[in-house]
Write a protein that binds this DNA or RNA. Sequence first.
DNA 1: TAACTCATGTAATCGGTTACATGATTCG
DNA 2: CGAATCATGTAACCGATTACATGAGTTA
Lengths: 191, 191
Amino acid sequence: MSLQHAVLCVLEARAMTGYELTQFFESAAKWVWTAPQSQIYPLLRQMEKNGLIAGEVQLRGEKLKRTSYSLTEEGLAELRRWIAEPQPEPPTRDALLLQVLFADLVEPEECEAVLRNHIAEQRVKIRLWREHEARLLAGDTPLLRERLAHRDPKDHQRIGALKAHVFSELVRAAEQRVAWAEEAIGILHGG
Amino acid sequence: MSLQHAVLCVLEARAMTGYELTQFFESAAKWVWTAPQSQIYPLLRQMEKNGLIAGEVQLRGEKLKRTSYSLTEEGLAELRRWIAEPQPEPPTRDALLLQVLFADLVEPEECEAVLRNHIAEQRVKIRLWREHEARLLAGDTPLLRERLAHRDPKDHQRIGALKAHVFSELVRAAEQRVAWAEEAIGILHGG
DNA sequence: TAACTCATGTAATCGGTTACATGATTCG
DNA sequence: CGAATCATGTAACCGATTACATGAGTTA
C-alpha cells in the first residue's frame, strides 16, 4: 500500500481534507502518483486508526462537516523511515513494447498508428511536466511554498532544485520514448 | 486483463504448457511482461473456455498428463486486433521519484544510499537486456527462431531488428535513469 | 533413495478501477 | 433557481501477490 506514503508526503506540507487530497491525486498526469477518489477516504480512516494521521472535524456552514487530516509524530517518523528505505522495483509490464515486439502480425501502418498515438500522448505529458518543472525552479507551486515555510531558508534553493530534477526525469524519459517510437516507425517501413 | 494478450503473443510462436509459460513469465527482468505462476493456470483455463486457445492433453510416462495450449483462429484474430489498438497509458506511480521529491526530510546520505541501490539494480537489468538485444539481432533466441519459421524469409531481418529495438529502449531508459540518479546525488550534496 | 525438475492446483489478501449515491454550499 | 463545487461515502470487480500444497518423473 504505497498510496499511504504518497498521502503522508502531501500531508507533510500541510493538513488537507479527503476532498483536497482527491483532487491532488486525480490530477493524474501532472504528478508522480495517482489514485481515484474511492481509495482516498477509506485509506484516510485506516491511517487515522493506525495513528499516522489525525483528523480534525471542522464546520462549514450549518450542517456540513469536513475533516482535515494532518501528520502525527508517528506519521512523520514512518514517512522518514519509508523515504530512506529502498523500495522494490516494480515488475515490467509494458503494453506498447509488447505490441511492437509482435508488430509483424499486423500491417506496418497499423503499428505506426499506435506509435503515433503514443507519441502524441507523450508530448502532452512533456508539456505539463515541463511547466511544473519551471514552476518548481521558480519556487512557485503552492505546495512547495508551504513546505519551504517550515524549512531552513538556506536549503530552499537545493530543495527546489531536487524537486525540479524529478520532473526533468519525467520529461527526459518521455522525450526518449518519443525518439524511440519515431525510430521504430522507421524500422517498420524497412529502414 | 493484459496478461491474456502477453500469453497470446507467446503462444503465437509455438504451443506451450502452463509450466513453460510460467517459466517464461517468471523470468521477470528479462522480458517486457511478468506474471506469477498462480496467475497462469486459471487464466489458461479461462482463455480456453473463451475459445482463444486450445489445450491438447499429452502423456508423459504412465500417469502424468500435461496440457499444451496453442492459439486458435479466434485467438490469433483477437491478438491482431489488440496489437493494432492503442492501449491506455498506465498511470504514473513511481516510488523512487516520490522518495527523491521528499528527500529533504531525511539525511542526504540516506537518500544517496537509496539512489545508489537503484543504480545498481538498473545496471543488472541493463546487462540482461543488452544480452537479449544482441541475441535478437543475431536471430539467436529460441522463441524468435520458432516465430521466424512461419514467416516470409525476406521479413526476417526487419522482424529481428524491430524486436531488438524494443530491448534497446529498455536499455536506454535504464541508462537514462542511472544518469539521472547520479545527477540527483550531486544535487543532494548542494552541487 | 534423496534431491531436483516437471506439472498443476488453490486460497487469502491487496491495491486499484469503475460506477453509483447522497447531500450541503456557493455562485451566477 | 439551477448549475457547479464541496464533501463523503459504498460496492462489485479485477489483476496481481504471496503462500501453501500435491504428486509424478528424472537424475545423481
